[in-house]
Amino acid sequence: MASRQQRRDRLIFLVPSMTVLAVILVYPLAYSLGLSFYNYYLPVPRTTFVGLENFRFILADDAFWEALGVTARFTGAAVAIEVVLGIAVALLLDARIPCRRFVNTVVLLPMAITPAVAGLLMRWMFESNWGLVNYFLGLAGVRGPGWTGDPAWALWSIILADVWQNTPFVILVVYAGLQSVPVEPLEAAMVDGASRAQTLAHVVFPFLRPLVLFVLIIRSMDAFRIFDQVFVMTGGGPGTTTQTITFYNYVMAFRQLRMGRASALGVITLLILSLVIGAWIYLLYRREKGEW
Protein backbone atom coordinates (compact mmCIF):
# COMPACT_ATOMS: atom_id res chain seq x y z
CA MET A 1 0.00 0.00 0.00
CA ALA A 2 1.33 3.46 -0.88
CA SER A 3 2.41 5.62 2.03
CA ARG A 4 1.06 9.12 2.59
CA GLN A 5 4.34 10.52 1.28
CA GLN A 6 4.04 8.45 -1.93
CA ARG A 7 0.43 9.56 -2.45
CA ARG A 8 1.47 13.17 -1.98
CA ASP A 9 4.32 12.76 -4.47
CA ARG A 10 1.94 11.27 -7.00
CA LEU A 11 -0.42 14.19 -6.61
CA ILE A 12 2.46 16.63 -7.09
CA PHE A 13 3.42 14.86 -10.30
CA LEU A 14 -0.17 15.13 -11.49
CA VAL A 15 -0.33 18.90 -10.98
CA PRO A 16 1.34 19.99 -14.29
CA SER A 17 -0.81 17.78 -16.48
CA MET A 18 -3.99 18.67 -14.59
CA THR A 19 -3.13 22.36 -14.92
CA VAL A 20 -2.67 22.01 -18.68
CA LEU A 21 -5.94 20.07 -18.95
CA ALA A 22 -7.75 22.70 -16.91
CA VAL A 23 -6.47 25.51 -19.11
CA ILE A 24 -7.07 23.90 -22.49
CA LEU A 25 -10.11 21.77 -21.71
CA VAL A 26 -12.03 22.70 -18.60
CA TYR A 27 -11.83 26.49 -18.89
CA PRO A 28 -13.07 26.73 -22.53
CA LEU A 29 -15.81 24.23 -21.79
CA ALA A 30 -16.95 26.09 -18.70
CA TYR A 31 -16.73 29.43 -20.52
CA SER A 32 -18.78 28.08 -23.42
CA LEU A 33 -21.35 26.63 -21.02
CA GLY A 34 -21.57 30.01 -19.31
CA LEU A 35 -22.03 31.84 -22.60
CA SER A 36 -24.86 29.54 -23.60
CA PHE A 37 -27.08 31.18 -20.96
CA TYR A 38 -26.51 34.68 -22.37
CA ASN A 39 -27.83 36.62 -25.31
CA TYR A 40 -24.41 37.43 -26.70
CA TYR A 41 -24.60 39.06 -30.15
CA LEU A 42 -21.06 39.91 -31.20
CA PRO A 43 -21.71 43.42 -32.62
CA VAL A 44 -23.40 44.49 -29.39
CA PRO A 45 -20.99 44.62 -26.43
CA ARG A 46 -23.74 44.28 -23.81
CA THR A 47 -24.85 40.71 -22.95
CA THR A 48 -27.99 39.75 -21.09
CA PHE A 49 -28.77 36.62 -19.12
CA VAL A 50 -31.53 34.66 -20.87
CA GLY A 51 -31.49 31.37 -18.95
CA LEU A 52 -32.39 28.42 -21.18
CA GLU A 53 -33.78 30.58 -24.00
CA ASN A 54 -30.87 29.74 -26.37
CA PHE A 55 -31.46 26.02 -25.85
CA ARG A 56 -35.19 26.47 -26.41
CA PHE A 57 -34.54 28.41 -29.61
CA ILE A 58 -32.21 25.75 -31.02
CA LEU A 59 -34.47 22.83 -30.17
CA ALA A 60 -37.38 24.62 -31.86
CA ASP A 61 -35.29 25.49 -34.91
CA ASP A 62 -35.92 23.40 -38.06
CA ALA A 63 -32.39 24.09 -39.24
CA PHE A 64 -30.98 22.33 -36.17
CA TRP A 65 -32.97 19.16 -36.77
CA GLU A 66 -32.10 19.21 -40.47
CA ALA A 67 -28.41 19.62 -39.63
CA LEU A 68 -28.65 16.79 -37.10
CA GLY A 69 -30.23 14.56 -39.77
CA VAL A 70 -27.49 15.42 -42.28
CA THR A 71 -24.82 14.73 -39.64
CA ALA A 72 -26.38 11.38 -38.72
CA ARG A 73 -26.61 10.31 -42.38
CA PHE A 74 -23.05 11.41 -43.01
CA THR A 75 -21.65 9.73 -39.88
CA GLY A 76 -23.55 6.49 -40.47
CA ALA A 77 -22.56 6.14 -44.12
CA ALA A 78 -18.97 7.35 -43.84
CA VAL A 79 -18.08 5.30 -40.74
CA ALA A 80 -19.77 2.14 -42.07
CA ILE A 81 -17.93 2.31 -45.39
CA GLU A 82 -14.62 3.18 -43.74
CA VAL A 83 -14.81 0.32 -41.25
CA VAL A 84 -15.87 -2.34 -43.78
CA LEU A 85 -13.39 -1.15 -46.40
CA GLY A 86 -10.64 -0.68 -43.83
CA ILE A 87 -11.01 -4.21 -42.45
CA ALA A 88 -11.10 -5.65 -45.99
CA VAL A 89 -7.93 -3.84 -47.05
CA ALA A 90 -6.16 -4.69 -43.79
CA LEU A 91 -6.95 -8.39 -44.32
CA LEU A 92 -5.67 -8.08 -47.87
CA LEU A 93 -2.42 -6.52 -46.70
CA ASP A 94 -2.12 -9.23 -44.04
CA ALA A 95 -2.43 -11.92 -46.72
CA ARG A 96 1.09 -11.19 -47.93
CA ILE A 97 0.26 -9.68 -51.31
CA PRO A 98 3.13 -8.69 -53.64
CA CYS A 99 4.71 -5.22 -53.10
CA ARG A 100 3.09 -5.08 -49.66
CA ARG A 101 5.38 -2.36 -48.33
CA PHE A 102 4.77 -0.13 -51.30
CA VAL A 103 0.99 -0.67 -51.09
CA ASN A 104 1.14 -0.01 -47.35
CA THR A 105 2.83 3.36 -47.92
CA VAL A 106 0.52 4.43 -50.73
CA VAL A 107 -2.61 3.44 -48.82
CA LEU A 108 -1.57 5.55 -45.84
CA LEU A 109 -0.76 8.69 -47.84
CA PRO A 110 -4.20 10.38 -47.58
CA MET A 111 -3.82 10.45 -43.79
CA ALA A 112 -0.83 12.74 -44.15
CA ILE A 113 -2.90 15.43 -45.89
CA THR A 114 -4.74 18.03 -43.82
CA PRO A 115 -8.54 17.80 -44.17
CA ALA A 116 -8.90 21.28 -45.72
CA VAL A 117 -6.35 20.49 -48.41
CA ALA A 118 -7.94 17.11 -49.00
CA GLY A 119 -11.29 18.88 -49.34
CA LEU A 120 -9.86 21.27 -51.91
CA LEU A 121 -8.37 18.37 -53.83
CA MET A 122 -11.68 16.54 -53.75
CA ARG A 123 -13.62 19.63 -54.76
CA TRP A 124 -11.70 19.75 -58.00
CA MET A 125 -11.89 16.00 -58.49
CA PHE A 126 -15.67 16.13 -58.10
CA GLU A 127 -16.06 19.26 -60.26
CA SER A 128 -18.72 18.15 -62.67
CA ASN A 129 -17.49 19.85 -65.83
CA TRP A 130 -13.73 19.55 -65.61
CA GLY A 131 -13.16 17.13 -62.72
CA LEU A 132 -11.24 13.86 -62.77
CA VAL A 133 -14.10 11.72 -61.45
CA ASN A 134 -16.51 12.67 -64.21
CA TYR A 135 -13.71 12.41 -66.75
CA PHE A 136 -13.14 8.76 -65.86
CA LEU A 137 -16.87 8.11 -65.68
CA GLY A 138 -17.08 9.63 -69.17
CA LEU A 139 -14.41 7.23 -70.44
CA ALA A 140 -16.59 4.40 -69.16
CA GLY A 141 -19.56 5.86 -71.05
CA VAL A 142 -21.27 7.14 -67.89
CA ARG A 143 -22.41 10.76 -67.63
CA GLY A 144 -21.39 11.85 -64.14
CA PRO A 145 -23.72 13.84 -61.91
CA GLY A 146 -23.27 17.42 -60.75
CA TRP A 147 -21.75 16.11 -57.48
CA THR A 148 -21.28 19.11 -55.17
CA GLY A 149 -24.01 21.15 -56.89
CA ASP A 150 -26.57 18.34 -57.01
CA PRO A 151 -28.70 17.89 -53.87
CA ALA A 152 -28.85 14.13 -54.46
CA TRP A 153 -25.07 13.76 -54.70
CA ALA A 154 -23.57 16.59 -52.66
CA LEU A 155 -23.56 14.66 -49.38
CA TRP A 156 -22.19 11.60 -51.14
CA SER A 157 -19.31 13.59 -52.55
CA ILE A 158 -18.36 14.60 -49.00
CA ILE A 159 -18.83 11.03 -47.74
CA LEU A 160 -16.54 9.73 -50.49
CA ALA A 161 -13.96 12.40 -49.71
CA ASP A 162 -14.05 11.42 -46.03
CA VAL A 163 -13.77 7.72 -46.91
CA TRP A 164 -10.75 8.47 -49.08
CA GLN A 165 -9.04 10.33 -46.29
CA ASN A 166 -9.93 8.29 -43.23
CA THR A 167 -10.10 4.66 -44.34
CA PRO A 168 -6.28 4.48 -43.99
CA PHE A 169 -6.69 5.10 -40.25
CA VAL A 170 -8.94 2.04 -39.97
CA ILE A 171 -6.51 0.02 -42.09
CA LEU A 172 -3.59 1.04 -39.91
CA VAL A 173 -5.29 0.11 -36.63
CA VAL A 174 -6.81 -3.17 -37.87
CA TYR A 175 -3.60 -4.20 -39.62
CA ALA A 176 -1.66 -3.62 -36.41
CA GLY A 177 -4.29 -5.72 -34.61
CA LEU A 178 -3.91 -8.53 -37.11
CA GLN A 179 -0.19 -8.64 -36.48
CA SER A 180 -0.82 -9.24 -32.81
CA VAL A 181 -3.24 -12.18 -33.22
CA PRO A 182 -1.45 -15.16 -31.59
CA VAL A 183 -0.51 -18.07 -33.86
CA GLU A 184 -1.70 -20.87 -31.57
CA PRO A 185 -5.48 -20.39 -31.94
CA LEU A 186 -5.06 -20.02 -35.72
CA GLU A 187 -3.13 -23.29 -35.89
CA ALA A 188 -5.70 -24.99 -33.67
CA ALA A 189 -8.47 -23.80 -36.00
CA MET A 190 -6.57 -25.15 -38.99
CA VAL A 191 -6.06 -28.55 -37.26
CA ASP A 192 -9.78 -28.65 -36.46
CA GLY A 193 -10.55 -28.13 -40.17
CA ALA A 194 -12.12 -24.67 -39.87
CA SER A 195 -12.63 -22.84 -43.17
CA ARG A 196 -11.01 -19.43 -43.78
CA ALA A 197 -14.32 -17.66 -43.18
CA GLN A 198 -14.91 -19.60 -39.95
CA THR A 199 -11.39 -18.77 -38.75
CA LEU A 200 -11.98 -15.11 -39.46
CA ALA A 201 -15.37 -15.02 -37.75
CA HIS A 202 -14.56 -17.12 -34.69
CA VAL A 203 -10.85 -16.63 -34.11
CA VAL A 204 -9.62 -13.40 -35.71
CA PHE A 205 -12.58 -11.06 -35.17
CA PRO A 206 -12.92 -11.68 -31.41
CA PHE A 207 -9.30 -10.52 -31.11
CA LEU A 208 -10.04 -7.48 -33.23
CA ARG A 209 -13.22 -6.48 -31.42
CA PRO A 210 -11.64 -3.96 -28.97
CA LEU A 211 -9.79 -2.38 -31.87
CA VAL A 212 -12.92 -2.16 -34.01
CA LEU A 213 -14.73 -0.56 -31.09
CA PHE A 214 -11.89 1.91 -30.70
CA VAL A 215 -12.00 2.71 -34.42
CA LEU A 216 -15.79 3.08 -34.36
CA ILE A 217 -15.64 5.49 -31.43
CA ILE A 218 -12.83 7.60 -32.83
CA ARG A 219 -14.27 7.73 -36.34
CA SER A 220 -17.82 8.40 -35.12
CA MET A 221 -16.58 11.31 -33.03
CA ASP A 222 -14.53 12.70 -35.91
CA ALA A 223 -17.26 12.19 -38.49
CA PHE A 224 -19.86 13.78 -36.24
CA ARG A 225 -17.69 16.87 -36.02
CA ILE A 226 -16.92 17.10 -39.75
CA PHE A 227 -16.32 20.66 -40.86
CA ASP A 228 -13.31 21.18 -43.16
CA GLN A 229 -14.53 19.18 -46.14
CA VAL A 230 -18.03 20.69 -45.91
CA PHE A 231 -16.62 24.20 -45.72
CA VAL A 232 -14.30 23.71 -48.68
CA MET A 233 -16.39 21.47 -50.93
CA THR A 234 -19.99 22.64 -50.63
CA GLY A 235 -20.30 25.42 -48.05
CA GLY A 236 -23.28 23.51 -46.62
CA GLY A 237 -25.23 23.64 -49.89
CA PRO A 238 -27.02 23.25 -52.15
CA GLY A 239 -29.80 24.50 -49.92
CA THR A 240 -28.88 22.89 -46.62
CA THR A 241 -28.29 19.38 -47.95
CA THR A 242 -24.75 19.22 -46.58
CA GLN A 243 -25.12 21.54 -43.60
CA THR A 244 -23.84 19.45 -40.70
CA ILE A 245 -24.14 20.36 -37.03
CA THR A 246 -20.64 21.82 -36.80
CA PHE A 247 -21.07 23.79 -40.00
CA TYR A 248 -24.38 25.14 -38.69
CA ASN A 249 -22.59 26.02 -35.47
CA TYR A 250 -19.97 27.89 -37.47
CA VAL A 251 -22.64 29.78 -39.45
CA MET A 252 -24.38 30.74 -36.23
CA ALA A 253 -21.15 31.93 -34.58
CA PHE A 254 -19.21 33.55 -37.39
CA ARG A 255 -21.79 34.60 -39.96
CA GLN A 256 -24.79 35.38 -37.78
CA LEU A 257 -22.48 36.35 -34.90
CA ARG A 258 -24.87 34.81 -32.33
CA MET A 259 -22.26 33.61 -29.85
CA GLY A 260 -24.72 32.70 -27.08
CA ARG A 261 -26.78 30.50 -29.37
CA ALA A 262 -23.66 29.00 -30.94
CA SER A 263 -22.36 28.08 -27.47
CA ALA A 264 -25.69 26.46 -26.62
CA LEU A 265 -25.48 24.48 -29.86
CA GLY A 266 -21.96 23.42 -28.90
CA VAL A 267 -23.20 22.14 -25.54
CA ILE A 268 -26.07 20.25 -27.21
CA THR A 269 -23.63 18.72 -29.71
CA LEU A 270 -21.37 17.58 -26.88
CA LEU A 271 -24.30 15.92 -25.11
CA ILE A 272 -25.44 14.16 -28.29
CA LEU A 273 -21.95 12.95 -29.03
CA SER A 274 -21.54 11.62 -25.49
CA LEU A 275 -24.80 9.71 -25.87
CA VAL A 276 -23.72 8.27 -29.22
CA ILE A 277 -20.38 7.10 -27.86
CA GLY A 278 -22.05 5.68 -24.76
CA ALA A 279 -24.47 3.80 -26.98
CA TRP A 280 -21.61 2.35 -29.03
CA ILE A 281 -19.87 1.05 -25.94
CA TYR A 282 -23.09 -0.37 -24.51
CA LEU A 283 -24.15 -2.08 -27.75
CA LEU A 284 -20.83 -3.65 -28.56
CA TYR A 285 -20.09 -4.79 -25.03
CA ARG A 286 -23.51 -5.61 -23.73
CA ARG A 287 -22.56 -9.29 -23.46
CA GLU A 288 -19.32 -8.54 -21.77
CA LYS A 289 -20.18 -5.79 -19.34
CA GLY A 290 -17.39 -4.99 -17.02
CA GLU A 291 -14.69 -5.58 -19.61
CA TRP A 292 -13.83 -1.91 -19.67
Partner: peptide, 19 residues
Protein backbone atom coordinates in the same frame (compact mmCIF):
# COMPACT_ATOMS: atom_id res chain seq x y z
CA UNK B 1 -27.42 25.28 -67.06
CA UNK B 2 -24.34 23.19 -66.17
CA UNK B 3 -25.19 20.36 -63.75
CA UNK B 4 -23.51 21.85 -60.66
CA UNK B 5 -24.82 25.38 -61.18
CA UNK B 6 -26.10 25.51 -57.59
CA UNK B 7 -22.44 25.71 -56.53
CA UNK B 8 -21.64 28.53 -58.97
CA UNK B 9 -20.48 31.87 -57.63
CA UNK B 10 -19.25 34.71 -59.88
CA UNK B 11 -15.91 33.04 -60.61
CA UNK B 12 -17.51 29.78 -61.73
CA UNK B 13 -20.01 31.60 -63.99
CA UNK B 14 -17.19 33.62 -65.53
CA UNK B 15 -15.05 30.55 -66.18
CA UNK B 16 -18.06 28.74 -67.67
CA UNK B 17 -18.48 31.58 -70.21
CA UNK B 18 -14.74 31.87 -70.86
CA UNK B 19 -14.34 28.15 -71.47
Amino acid sequence: APPNVLAFHNDESTVAMQQ
